[in-house]
């Protein structure tokens, strides 16, 4: 497992290659990249600032990856989440999961994102033409996480 909370950008291709080349019985790598959209709730967004809780955030991410690893037969996970101020179109998050077959990797990747969205301590503040505003948590994200407990 590789978990990182960082201000620097990442190279998704490089991270995927690393997982592909780590072992020869890898049959699938599933990845997700989350980006800063330039439009939210009808307003133009020029930048997004991500705050986190150093210490707790890393632990929470590791716990989520551990849960995915105990639930599905996957080989490895790379999880990178950026913090600080990001411009529209910038990359925010990468989740990449390797496994022997695609099914397990698809499920684990989605599970990790659904839990990250609702349990990992990150907070987004966006800058629009009318000023800065904190984003509110969405109930649809809670519902997405709850699916995994049914």
């Amino acid at each position: 497992m590789a978990v990182s909370v960082q201000t620097e950008d990442f190279d998704a291709g490089l991270e995927i290659n690393r997982l592909q080349n780590a072992r020869k019985d890898t049959g699938a790598v599933v990845s997700f990249v989350g980006l800063v959209r330039d439009l939210n709730e009808g307003d133009q967004v020029s930048q997004l600032t991500l705050e986190h809780y150093p210490g707790m955030t890393e632990k929470a991410l590791e716990a989520i990856v551990n849960q995915a690893q105990s639930r599905w037969d996957i080989f490895d996970v790379t999880l990178i989440h950026r913090v600080g101020t990001l411009q529209a179109t910038a990359q925010i998050v990468l989740v990449a999961v390797s496994s022997a077959h695609r099914g397990e990797a698809f499920k684990a990747c989605e599970f990790i994102m659904d839990y990250l969205k609702t349990e990992a301590p990150f907070w987004k503040k966006e800058l629009t033409q009318s000023g800065e505003r904190w984003l509110d948590a969405k109930s649809s994200d809670d519902e997405a996480r709850e699916r995994w407990n049914q």
Binding site: G34, V93, L116, K117, T118, E119, W134, D136, A137
Partner: peptide, 10 residues
């Protein structure tokens, strides 16, 4: 101890 609003990462 820490206090914070519901999280909004990802």
């Amino acid at each position: 101890v820490a206090f914070f609003p519901p999280v909004t990462g990802g």
